[in-house]
């Protein structure tokens, strides 16, 4: 019997508790929501349960929480200077959330929440609205000087300002699509190469070639672990860089 390849099936939302409709929108507690709350639970386990003893000499889990804290603190400080301290909870939460969800996706049969564009776009929209909101709150209209490079002839401004505006608007899109596309493509690639192993095994004499996609799948799995961590880091770093614009607008 032929085995059909279906790399898309893994991204389907499964309704665990249906909650009805609002127009076209289906309301349900999905496995995606379950994974998100599980990620919150794991983050709390690392950063709250493991640190409850507040020991001077940390255990493994407390050490992990401290490493994450110092890592994000350093990243944020490098990008924004001293003024960025107030955004530590936001950047730290984003990093932990994305990292844990990405790594959840690496568990066999688990669901990769970050492979859904609406989730990554929701997070990116949150980041950009914080940047715009804080920038306007702190600097008023001066914040929009971000779009007007200083020391440029007026004629050039007519070209440069639209470019700056477009580049700013494209930020949430690039931020969300980067994470989404990385996770989606990685999981599809893993699924396809793993599937080649099965197909080659069923293909008679060709089955001698089946170790090749197997090794590729193993290599891809390692790469995907790297991508999972790297994308969380990239998301946090870019958030810090965008927040720097809200703290210090003007070129």
């Amino acid at each position: 019997m032929a085995v059909t390849i279906d790399p898309i099936h893994q991204f389907e939302l499964k309704s665990l508790v249906p909650l009805g409709h609002i127009g076209h929108q289906q309301l349900a507690f999905t496995q995606s929501a379950l994974y998100m709350f599980a990620a919150v639970g794991v983050a709390a386990l690392i950063t709250i349960v493991a640190t409850s003893s507040r020991s001077i000499v940390p255990g493994r889990m407390q050490s992990l929480a401290e490493i994450f804290y110092e890592f994000i603190d350093d990243t944020l400080h490098q990008a924004t200077g001293d003024g960025g301290k107030r955004f530590m909870p936001l950047v730290f939460s984003l990093f932990m959330f994305v990292l844990i969800l990405n790594l959840f996706g690496m568990i066999p049969y688990a669901f990769a929440v970050t492979s859904h564009l609406i989730i990554t776009f929701g997070l990116a929209a949150l980041v950009i609205s914080v940047v715009v909101g804080y920038g306007v709150y702190k600097h008023g209209t001066h914040f929009f000087g971000l779009f007007v490079p200083s020391g440029v002839p007026k004629v050039l401004l007519a070209i440069l300002v639209p470019i700056e505006v477009i580049s700013f608007i494209s930020r949430p899109i690039s931020l969300s699509v980067r994470l989404f596309a990385n996770m989606l493509a990685g999981h599809i690639a893993m699924k396809i190469f793993a599937f080649f192993v099965v197909q080659l095994l069923l293909a008679g004499a060709w089955s001698v070639l089946s170790p090749l996609p197997l090794f590729l799948t193993i290599a891809l799995t390692a790469l995907e672990f790297l991508v999972a961590a790297l994308q969380a880091y990239v998301f946090a770093t870019l958030t810090a860089i965008y927040l720097n614009d809200a703290l210090h607008p003007g070129h």
Binding site: I8, F97, I118, L126, L184
Partner: peptide, 19 residues
């Protein structure tokens, strides 16, 4: 599935709650 708009509202709500 990632472009299926009928689940967007629920996902955003759960995302907002969890995050």
């Amino acid at each position: 599935p990632p472009f299926e708009t009928s689940g967007f509202l629920a996902q955003l709500v759960w995302l907002a709650l969890a995050f």
